[in-house]
Design a protein around this nucleic acid. Structure first.
Lengths: 130, 130
DNA sequence: CTCGATATCGATAACCATTATCATTGTATA
DNA sequence: TATACAATGATAATGGTTATCGATATCGAG
């Protein structure tokens, strides 16, 4: 039986109240502003609870560690290889791909994750200056 | 200036002579059969050299750590969430996606990586038995 | 309201994959 | 061969995540 805790509420509010992609350290940093005694273990615990409950998702980027995402709709990401910034891409999830592979290769496809890599607008301009 | 070493040759032969996806531990295990003194640092060093030289590629799966892949053609992967097995998918890389995003969102897209998740044929059958 | 069961916290140890260090060994060229 | 230096390999360090466990907080029963 799951009990209320202010720490869980803080973590949930941080990750759900933002449309950014946050790593555990960033969540900890923000959580400490509300409750400075809150620790990294509590952050991971509650982020993983939220993932299990399907309220947020997590994925990996080009670097080490997990990125936590309050957007649980299936969607695609872009990461700038110069500054590391992560963006959601405003293109629709192609579920036809899953169906097609399911049908043609007899695999049970649940989902797919796609990460686009390249250079963001800001870094394209900065490059030109050098 | 890069010099010959038998260890580098062993690692290169293992990863290039297979069509599997190998993690560093697996490469070490196979390399030790040829030269038992070969260490994990040498495995990583030489795998990363090969990646830098563009002779192999590396990516992440659902678990921790890197997967090294001798197939440097852009292609898609499938991972069975039951047994963890990784497969190349026999569908062509959709470079139109990169071009489309490049054009419509003014991002400089170099590439994209897609991982499909689901259940492989073998595990579909095993599931039915329970 | 108080008590007791137990879920949660949080400091920190443990873990695991990867990378860095550095004395030793191997390679190649003058 | 002698010399320069690239590469090795044992191991320490690193960094992110998870496990441990005594202390604390929550909540339902009485």
């Amino acid at each position: 039986m799951t009990k209320f805790s202010s720490q869980r509420e803080i973590v949930a509010n941080i990750i759900c109240g933002t449309h950014q992609h946050l790593c555990a350290d960033e969540v900890l940093f923000m959580a400490k502003k509300v409750n400075p005694r809150l620790g990294i273990a509590t952050v991971y615990r509650n982020l993983n609870y939220l993932v299990e409950e399907g309220k947020i998702s997590k994925f990996r980027d080009a670097n080490q560690g997990y990125i936590f995402d309050s957007n649980i709709e299936k969607h695609y990401h872009f990461q700038c290889m110069t500054c590391g910034m992560l963006y959601d891409l405003p293109i629709r999830y192609n579920s036809n791909l899953d169906d097609m592979i399911n049908r043609e290769l007899q695999l049970e496809i649940d989902t797919h994750e796609t990460m686009f890599y390249g250079t963001c607008k800001k870094c394209q301009m900065t490059k030109g200056e050098n």
